[in-house]
Each structure stands twice: as C-alpha cells, then as structure tokens.
Design a protein around this nucleic acid. Structure first.
Lengths: 225, 225
DNA sequence: CCAAAAGTGTTTTTCCTACACCCATGT
DNA sequence: ACATGGGTGTAGGAAAAACACTTTTGG
C-alpha cells in the first residue's frame, strides 16, 4: 500500500451484506489476495475511499466492483468504525463498516451465483477472514439479531410478498428461537405493519397460503419479539 | 488546514459528553475559533487523530486538552461516523463521533467549572454549533434517550450511590415523561439490577432515603421502560 | 382418501396501570 | 406539631403464553 507512510490514516469502507435463503443466513464474501499477508483469504468486500466520496458511496462502489452486487437494491446502515492501529498489517487503515441486507429473490442470477471469488457463504461457515473482518462480521450479526427484535428491519431480508409462515421462519432463523405459530400471528397482525394481499401463494400441492407485504418500506422502531 | 490537499480524508474524533445535574442534562462545549468560518462558535470538543492512535484515544486526548475533562472517569461509546464531503468547510475531514457520559459528582471542581471557553451547557440551549455538530449532538441525544430505555446506560450518569427518587428523576429527565413512583419502584427493583446499600441518605431535614447502587458497573441490555 | 402445510380460539398467568395514605425526620 | 419528601398495596384490565384440532389442497 503506497500510502501507508502518510501522516494520517487512510479510510476504507467494508460491508457485511446478508441475505436469507432456505432458512439460512448468508454473507457475501470476496477473496482477498494481498501477499504476503493474505493469499486468497475470504474477506468482506470493501476498499478505500476516493478523496471526494462519502463512506457510504465508497461502500456501494466496492460492493458493486468486488462483490458484483448492485447498490440500489441493498438496504445499508452504518455499523461501526474500526480504528485499531494494526488492523491492516500493511499500514494504517481505518474502516467504516456497514451492515447491508438484500432479499434473495431480488438478486439477478449473476448476483446469486459465485463469481470472481465473490460468493455467498452461510454465516456459520464464515470464519478466518482477512484483516479484522471476523470481528466486523461478528458485530454485524449481533447487531442484525438485536435490531430485528425491536425494528421492522426484517423487511429488508424478505421478498415483497411472503406468507406468515415464511416470516415466522425468518424470525426463528435470525433469533434462533421457536415461536408459537398462533401467538406469532396474533402479535404480528396486531402491530399493523403488514397488509393482506388480494392473492394467495399456491406453493405446492398443499393448501395455498395468504400472502402479505409490509405496509411501509421503511425500517421503523417497534417492539416485535 | 494544511492537509486539505491530501489524497485521502483526514480523520477526526468528536465527543458529545453529557452529565446530569439538578434534573437537567448538560453537554460539554468548547469554543471553536477558526476564522474565517468559525469565530468563537460553540462546538463539541474534538480534533484530528495522530497517525498511530485509535479514534477512541484521540477522542480522549482532545477531551482532556480542549474540554479539560480527564478521560478515565468517562464512559464512552462510539456514536456514528460522519463522512459528508463538505462537513468541514476547510477540507475533507471525516469525524468519528462518540457519545460519552460522566456523573456530575465525580468531576473535580475544575472540571465542573467553565474554563478556556469550555463549559457545561444545558442541551436545550446547545444549538448553532460549528461544523455539523448540531447534527452530531442531535443524534447523540436521540441515541442516549433511546438506549436509556433498554439498557442500564443511566448507570453512567448516576453517582455510585443514589436514592430511588433520584433515579426516577433521572429517567424522567431523559425520557421527558412522568413516572408513577410506586410502579417505577416495583419495576426497577424486580429487574435485580440494583442493590440496597446498608446506609441511608440524610439529605435534609426530612425522612432519610434508602441508598442503592447498581449491582454491576457494566451496561447491559434489559428492557427498562 | 391421504399427506402436508395453513389456519384458528380459549384459558391461564403475568405484567401494567391507576390510584391515596401513612411514615420518618429536622426544625 | 408541622412541613416535607420517603415509602407502601391492591384491584382491574391488557397482554403474553400455553395449548390441539380443523381446513384446504394436490396427488
């Protein structure tokens, strides 16, 4: 890194992008290849800021360039800024980390697949990442799990239309809990954050399920679980 | 700012330090004197990072140097990183902002008083600050108010020993609410986060009040209000 | 008619809220 | 003895938790 000698730290933006599929949470990882420290080690997508770009913009740009995911469809919020002096062995880099979410079904075939070393990895298998990305990822997962309980954040992981069972499964996956079907439905419907759609999902050879969507696309603070 | 021409943004750390006194929340402000943009405008204490110092360290150092408050006694947590390109009119400065709390009674006489342009200002009077510090302060207050509801953060604003009435007043001040004395006591005692001390506070000419302290000095996540 | 997931109600318990009076102390 | 803030209990309503069977569909 040619700028490591600068008087001031260099700034980077790293993103932990999650999606959910088949009741499992996945994170988008790229391959970090920076010998001698990192030879094809998995890591979170990210990179340096341009001189006149916000950290958010840089995060989106690197997400596109390195992880192949277009920024527009992601929900992004700032997670934490990591400023430990030795977090990058090659020089002083301060990273603004972002937590991002995207519904699996809104991804294109290319975005769903592995390419250029970028791939979707089940979070339980995402370990031994480059730099301090293990710590960033752990914090992101913790924040996601916590915010799901008292905000409508799960919205940003669900397809636009979904059944109550799918929503319940998503909550159970994120909070590692088993919810009572009847109580869950009573509670979530009483919150008035969902609207019943005029059609049903004939998903298989069984009874079709009523479809719902969130009333508002925004993430709001409501006690949920 | 001689470094504004650098290829990368310069990093700063700014701190919103709060204390509580007589049922009012105060924030520590300094005087920012950087003509032509800011001539003795109030602002949050902060400044640039040294090249091999974490943002936390820089925040503590500037707090000491500019606001005259020793770092050891403060509780500090990261608030948000502000990276708008034009947030500092003199150049590209990205600020890592911190939310800090200190109990009024642990401050020395010097720290309690105004000196060198540093002073304690009631938050309702803290406006028209330098840079984007209005936004930082607003976010800090919002975060403080929100975290007080579901964590034991208020611990870090209270003296080590306090009466239940004092604690209730602190909650009422922070959440702008009126709590029922009996219900508040029942609830807070059921949480088991307080321990009754063996002595009472003979505060005036009235009935002495039982003193309590927090069981743990840590900030933990518990639904409180 | 069978398999599989969708959908639904009641009871019990817990928690929250509203509310008013006596207590202990210093002067 | 009085002024002042400290301290307590109960009843009614709302919300949460526990719990099992019927419905709808495709094959």
């Amino acid at each position: 890194m040619k700028d490591a000698h600068l008087r001031f730290a260099v700034l980077a933006a790293d993103t932990a992008l999650f999606t959910m599929r088949d009741g499992t949470l996945y994170v988008r990882l790229i391959s970090v290849d920076r010998p001698p420290h990192f030879k094809n080690v998995p890591g979170l997508p990210g990179g340096l800021l341009h001189p006149s770009e916000t950290a958010e913009k840089a995060a989106a740009r690197h997400m596109k360039e390195k992880a192949g995911i277009k920024a527009g469809k992601m929900y992004v919020e700032q997670l934490y800024t990591f400023s430990k002096v030795d977090r990058d062995p090659r020089g002083r880099v301060v990273a603004v980390a972002y937590l991002a979410l995207v519904p699996w079904n809104t991804l294109s075939t290319r975005e769903q697949s592995d390419a250029n070393g970028a791939k979707w990895v089940a979070v339980k298998d995402a370990r031994h990442l480059a730099y301090d990305h293990d710590a960033i990822l752990m914090l992101a997962i913790q924040r996601l799990r916590s915010r799901v309980r008292y905000t409508t954040l799960i919205n940003k992981l669900m397809p636009r239309e979904f059944t109550l069972t799918e929503l319940e499964n998503a909550y159970e996956c994120l909070t590692s809990s088993n919810l009572d079907k009847r109580n869950f439905r009573k509670k979530i419907l009483k919150l008035k954050i969902l609207k019943e759609l005029p059609h049903k999902k004939s998903s298989g050879r069984f009874r079709p399920a009523q479809l719902y969507s969130f009333v508002s696309p925004n993430v709001s603070e409501i006690e949920i679980l």
